[in-house]
Lab assay of single mutants.
Amino acid sequence: MTFKLIINGKTLKGETTTEAVDAATAEKVFKQYFNDNGIDGEWTYDDATKTFTITE
């Protein structure tokens, strides 16, 4: 399955996707992406659209 990440950061904005077997696996991938890029904020997940959103 394809999961999308929408980034609404102070310095970084955009979208990316990842292929994962489930939302929990995608969450781990995206959290690592947050850490690697110094993004910290509030994030949500919409199961209907398989979209994670992080807002700094």
Rank of each mutant, 00 (worst) to 15 (best):
T2G: 03
T2W: 11
T2S: 08
T2I: 14
T2Q: 09
T2F: 08
T2A: 05
T2V: 13
F3K: 01
F3T: 01
F3S: 01
F3H: 01
F3C: 04
F3I: 02
K4E: 02
L5I: 06
L5A: 09
L5D: 01
I6H: 04
I6Q: 03
I6K: 05
I7Q: 02
I7R: 02
N8V: 13
N8R: 12
N8E: 08
N8W: 12
G9S: 11
G9L: 15
K10L: 14
K10Y: 11
K10P: 09
K10F: 13
T11R: 06
L12V: 11
L12F: 14
L12G: 12
L12Y: 14
K13Y: 11
K13R: 11
K13N: 09
G14Y: 15
G14Q: 12
E15Y: 13
E15H: 08
T16W: 15
T16R: 15
T16A: 13
T16G: 08
T16K: 13
T17C: 12
T17F: 13
T18G: 03
T18Y: 13
T18H: 05
T18A: 07
E19F: 15
E19A: 07
E19M: 14
A20K: 02
A20P: 01
A20F: 05
V21H: 09
V21E: 08
V21R: 11
V21W: 10
D22E: 03
D22C: 03
A23W: 11
A23S: 08
A24K: 10
A24N: 07
A24L: 09
A24E: 11
A24W: 09
T25L: 04
A26L: 02
A26E: 01
E27F: 15
E27S: 06
E27A: 11
K28R: 13
K28G: 06
K28V: 08
V29R: 09
V29Q: 10
V29F: 15
F30E: 00
F30M: 03
K31P: 01
Q32G: 07
Y33K: 06
F34V: 15
F34W: 12
F34R: 07
F34N: 13
F34H: 04
N35G: 12
N35R: 14
N35Y: 13
N35K: 14
D36T: 10
D36R: 11
D36W: 10
N37E: 11
N37A: 13
N37V: 14
G38E: 10
G38L: 11
G38Y: 11
I39S: 04
I39A: 05
I39Y: 08
I39M: 10
D40M: 13
D40S: 13
E42P: 05
E42I: 14
W43E: 01
W43K: 00
T44Y: 09
T44I: 07
T44R: 06
T44L: 07
Y45W: 02
Y45P: 00
D46E: 06
D46K: 02
D47T: 06
D47E: 12
D47R: 06
A48M: 10
A48P: 06
A48V: 10
T49M: 05
T49W: 03
T49C: 03
T49S: 08
T49L: 06
T49D: 03
T51P: 00
T51H: 01
T51D: 00
F52D: 00
F52A: 00
F52N: 00
F52K: 00
T53G: 02
T53L: 05
T53A: 04
T53W: 06
I54K: 02
